[in-house]
Computed example of a mutant assay.
Amino acid sequence: MKVLAVSSYGVLGGAELSLGVFLDHRPPGVQASALLIEDGPLRAHLSQRGVPSCAAHGYDGRPTPAQSVRFTRSLLRLLERERPDVVWATGLKAAYMAAPASRIARVPIVWHKVDFSLDAILTYPLAAAVNGVVSVSESVAEALRSLRRHRLLAVIGPPVRLPPELHIAPSERLAIGTLATLSPIKGQRHIVEAAALLSEEFPDLRIVLAGAPTLDDPGYPQELRELAGGLGIGNRLELLDFVADVSTVLARLTVFVNATFRDERGFGMEGLSGAMLEASWAGLPVVATSGGGTREGLRDGVTGTLANPADPPALAAAIAPYLRDRELARKTGEAGRRFARERFSPEVLAPRLFAALEQVASTR
């Protein structure tokens, strides 16, 4: 089977890193190449994995009708040259942009739906236009509504890319933190505010936030520094850029916090956080805001604790027990390690994904 993977973005975000892990674990006999709708470090990331890729240019942001037509013509030429058996479109933008050319060329297309973007407007018609949908979580699949029975191929969560032998004990030097792009919807502000509330009981508590700022919010890191300074904890906040080896960050944490929330525009709910699963895989207790697919990646009271979104006091209350009780933190982290390996190992998930692609490719 020959697969053309189309990625919505060229950054190394959660969906893009999952794309790389899936391709790392493609079955023997599967040939893969990739098209990035926006260029970025993902291209080098895939090249290191032996996956040839190319990038389109001039399609940043929401595409205009003229851009969509131009992209369709370009993709038609690529499909004629590559002759894939199936197009695997990761993300809404990839599916939206690739569907017309795929239909014209009669190459089956699978939409890998990774979030809730524009669900009310585009999910139903786009699902009708593609040959099948793979969803990152049951919550994300709900928007398919009556098309679910006819279009949903499988629900396949993000594969964890960390070594199977990795085992990190919660740090005795108390620290909370997260791995996420530095964007307001990721809730880093709420983590800082929760840390300030915890600082009276835990005066040495550190905050470690790893992730690159987005093009849309380049000033957000400075906002976080100013917030921490104003709350009297500026000297305990560490802002790291993108970190390739996430285990180096996880090893510094006592509790991993996923504070994503839905903003007033409707953006921000997690389809299912890969970083949260990596923290569980490593052996850390996880505190995460409820909503989206988070409940599918965290067993409340077993592998961590759910908290109300956009609510720093609730976040602080959920974090505090793990800082007070090291044995609770350790036991919770161990439960997370078992859960993540049972449900989110690439050896478990990759065969299911490529079986879904094969199912659609065989209908050609």
Rank of each mutant, 00 (worst) to 15 (best):
Gly211Met: 02
Pro213Arg: 12
Thr214Asn: 08
Leu215Phe: 15
Asp216Glu: 14
Asp217Trp: 11
Asp217His: 15
Asp217Ala: 15
Pro218Leu: 10
Gln222Ser: 14
Leu224Asn: 08
Arg225Val: 09
Leu227Thr: 03
Gly229Trp: 09
Gly234His: 02
Gly234Ala: 03
Leu237Gln: 12
Glu238Met: 12
Phe242Lys: 07
Asp245Pro: 07
Asp245Lys: 14
Thr248Arg: 01
Val249Asp: 01
Leu250Asp: 01
Arg252Met: 08
Leu253Ala: 00
Thr254Asn: 02
Val255Trp: 01
Val255Asn: 01
Phe256Cys: 05
Phe256Leu: 09
Asn258Cys: 12
Ala259Tyr: 01
Phe261Leu: 10
Phe261Lys: 11
Arg262Ile: 10
Glu264Trp: 15
Arg265Tyr: 14
Phe267Ala: 14
Met269His: 13
Ser273Asp: 10
Ser273Ala: 12
Gly274Tyr: 00
Ala275Gly: 15
Ala275Asn: 05
Ala275Tyr: 01
Ala275Thr: 13
Met276Gln: 10
Leu277Glu: 08
Glu278Thr: 01
Glu278Asn: 05
Glu278Ala: 05
Ala282Gln: 03
Gly283Ala: 05
Gly283Thr: 02
Gly283Met: 00
Pro285His: 07
Pro285Trp: 03
Val287Asp: 01
Thr289Val: 02
Ser290Gly: 14
Ser290Arg: 13
Gly291Phe: 08
Gly292Asn: 12
Gly292Gln: 04
Gly297Lys: 09
Leu298His: 02
Leu298Asp: 06
Arg299Lys: 15
Asp300Lys: 03
Val302Trp: 07
Thr303Met: 10
Thr303Leu: 05
Gly304Cys: 09
Thr305Ile: 14
Leu306Glu: 12
Pro309Cys: 05
Ala310Met: 06
Pro312Gly: 05
Pro312Ser: 05
Pro313Val: 14
Ala314Gln: 10
Ala316Phe: 05
Ala316Pro: 04
Ala320Asn: 11
Tyr322Pro: 12
Leu323Lys: 13
Arg326Lys: 09
Arg326Val: 04
Glu327Met: 09
Ala329Pro: 08
Arg330Tyr: 08
Thr332Lys: 02
Thr332Cys: 11
Gly333Gln: 01
Ala335Gly: 06
Gly336Lys: 00
Gly336Ser: 03
